[in-house]
């Protein structure tokens, strides 16, 4: 029991990072109807921006903020400069997914061309380990969980109680109807890409704070878990992303602890495949059904 609690503790930390990333990824799909395979690379870029700030003497929190803002700018520019023109030009799903892939490659290997394949890490303040109900978490990890809970609450308030949030949900379910009701879809989409960029930045930087290594493939490797969480929860649904993240995060760490660390990803991927076979629309299916991801 003791060990189970320990791994669940680790799982909650992973789930927190996943949750922030998965909300961002799923929002992008909901608004723009595309799978942004450059999302992981954006996370890495944010983590490197934070690394530059951190190495220049800023403390980690200021770096976290700057990294997230950088990712927001990058995400906005990607949508406006590349994805949107392509969407106007073609309806081919393949073109869009390959474009996001190409952009992801350029960002990821651009970073590798500059920094090489070396591992970096942040200078964090002195932390200590806290013991709670059999779990062991460091103060940093506790803050990571706090950031995730904060982000989830803010997203919930945004989506439920603001005009922007309601418009985002409307566009995700039926873009044409939303447009006909007078919702400025372009502005909503721009805002969504900025918000999801902030989330990808938060996820990228907190991921590095947790695992304490950063290289050019950090974000892209973690990204697949984010996809798993978003798809499991129901692609396009932010609440689904939260549910999916908790399941994937806890299952990944518990199976890593009890079975074999090497099988950590395999277990979560296997869950994903089973979900795709049995219920391809995921747990919360409203957006996924509207976009006909499965027939």
């Amino acid at each position: 029991m003791q060990t189970l609690a320990l791994y669940v503790g680790f799982g909650l930390v992973t789930a927190s990072i996943l949750c922030v990333g998965a909300i961002g990824f799923t929002l992008q799909f909901g608004i723009s109807n595309l799978f942004n395979l450059a999302f992981g690379a954006t996370m890495t870029a944010a983590a490197f921006i934070a690394y530059i700030c951190n190495a220049a003497g800023l403390d980690i929190w200021a770096s976290l903020v700057l990294g997230s803002l950088g990712a927001a700018a990058l995400s906005y520019l990607l949508n406006r400069g590349i994805y949107l023109p392509f969407k106007k030009r073609t309806t081919s799903l393949f073109t869009l997914i390959m474009v996001t892939l190409g952009v992801g490659l350029v960002i990821q290997y651009g970073i590798e061309a500059i920094w090489g394949a070396t591992d970096f890490s942040y200078t964090l303040g002195p932390g200590r380990s806290l013991h709670f109900a059999g779990m062991v978490v460091t103060t940093t990890q506790l803050i990571v969980i706090g950031i995730a809970v904060g982000a989830a609450v803010v997203m919930h308030l945004l989506l439920r109680y603001t005009r922007l949030g309601k418009a985002m949900r409307a566009v995700a379910v039926n873009e044409r109807l939303a447009r006909n009701c007078g919702i400025p879809v372009r502005i909503v989409a721009d805002s969504t890409w900025v918000i999801s960029g902030v989330l990808s930045g938060l996820a990228g930087v907190t991921l590095v704070m947790d695992v304490q290594t950063l290289n050019s493939s950090t974000g892209t490797e973690f990204f697949i878990l984010i996809v798993a969480a978003a798809v499991l929860g129901g692609i396009g649904s932010p609440y689904g992303a939260m549910i999916g993240s908790i399941i994937i995060g806890v299952v990944a760490e518990v199976s890593a602890g009890f079975l074999n660390p090497a099988f950590k990803d395999i277990t979560s991927f296997a869950i994903l495949i089973v979900v795709l076979l049995l219920r391809p629309t995921g747990v919360i299916r409203s957006v996924a059904s509207a976009k006909e991801v499965a027939r």
């Binding site: 799978f35 799903l93 393949f94 692609i235 090497a262 991927f269 994903l272 795709l276 391809p280 027939r295």
Partner: peptide, 29 residues
């Protein structure tokens, strides 16, 4: 056979990408 469930083409592509990663993980470990 995974594609018997008719998924949207790009959704299926993501599933296949994951299968590729699972295969690499399995053979490595």
């Amino acid at each position: 056979a995974v594609t018997i469930r008719r998924l949207r083409a790009d959704y299926l592509a993501i599933a296949l990408l994951v299968i590729s990663l699972i295969a690499t993980d399995l053979v490595t470990n």
